[in-house]
Design a protein around this nucleic acid. Structure first.
Lengths: 105, 105
DNA sequence: TTTGTATTTCGTAAAAATACGAAATATAAA
DNA sequence: TTTATATTTCGTATTTTTACGAAATACAAA
C-alpha cells in the first residue's frame, strides 16, 4: 500500500527529527559543518556541558545516522554523514513543500 | 553576542523538531495540510491510536505552535498555524542549507 | 430532558531522554 | 614505564514522553 510506504517514511523522518530535537545537538551539527563538515578539537570548549553528556549526544546523532566518527584515541574526528544528511534535508524540504501554507486559515 | 542569538534560534528550532519527532505527529501535520490545511473529521479513523493519546499529540503540536484549533464542541477544527509553520520551514531550510554536504569526508 | 457525538482532562504506568561524576579505554609523549 | 589527553562506558537519579481507559465537558439533536 502507498500509505504504508509513507508511514515508513514518517518513521524515518521522525528519527531524524528526534536527533535534531535538542539545542546541543543542533549546535554540534552546526559546528561540524562549520569546520568543513568535520571537527577534531575539544568540543566542550564550545559547549557548557559535561563531557559524558556530550558523548551521549554524539552517540544519538550517530545512531540516527546523521554523523560518523573516526576513532584514533585519544582523539576522534567527527563528521557529518553525507548520505543521510542529504536524505534528511530532502525529507524536510519535501514535507514542508507539500504542506504549504494555504489561504484557508 | 551573536552566538547567544543563534543559541536561542537553536532552542526554538529544537522545539519544532521535537514536535515533529513522532510519526503520528508527522501524519497529523500531513493530514491537516491535505485537507486544505484544516481537518474536521474523525481523525482516529485514519490513525491506529486511542483518542486520548491522539489528543495529547494534538496538545503538543499546539504547544509547539505548529497547529491551532477552533473549538466548537463537540467538534474541533484543527489547522496548521501558518506563521510558525513558515518559520519552522525557514529554520530547517536554512539549517540544512548552511550545513551542506561538502567534499571533506 | 435525555441521548449522542467529539473531544479533553485525569490518573496511572512504563519507557525513554537527559544529565552528572567516576572509572575505564586507548593512544601519544615524556 | 609513567603521564597526559580525549573520549567512552557505567551507574544512577530525575524528568519527560508515550500510551491507555475512564470520567468529564460541551454542545446538538431527538
Amino acid at each position: 500500500m502507498k500509505t504504508d510506504k509513507q508511514e515508513l517514511e514518517f518513521v524515518e523522518m521522525a528519527r531524524f527529527a528526534k536527533a535534531m530535537s535538542h539545542p546541543i545537538r543542533l549546535q554540534i551539527l552546526s559546528l561540524l559543518s562549520k569546520s568543513d563538515c568535520c571537527y577534531t578539537g575539544d568540543i566542550t570548549d564550545e559547549l557548557p556541558i559535561a563531557r559524558s553528556t556530550l558523548s551521549q549526544h554524539f552517540k544519538e546523532l550517530k545512531a540516527a545516522g546523521l554523523i560518523q566518527g573516526e576513532y584514533n584515541p585519544p582523539k576522534i574526528k567527527y563528521c557529518l554523514q553525507p548520505d543521510n544528511w542529504e536524505k534528511a534535508k530532502k525529507q524536510f524540504d519535501n514535507f514542508f513543500e507539500s504542506n504549504k501554507k494555504s489561504s484557508c486559515c
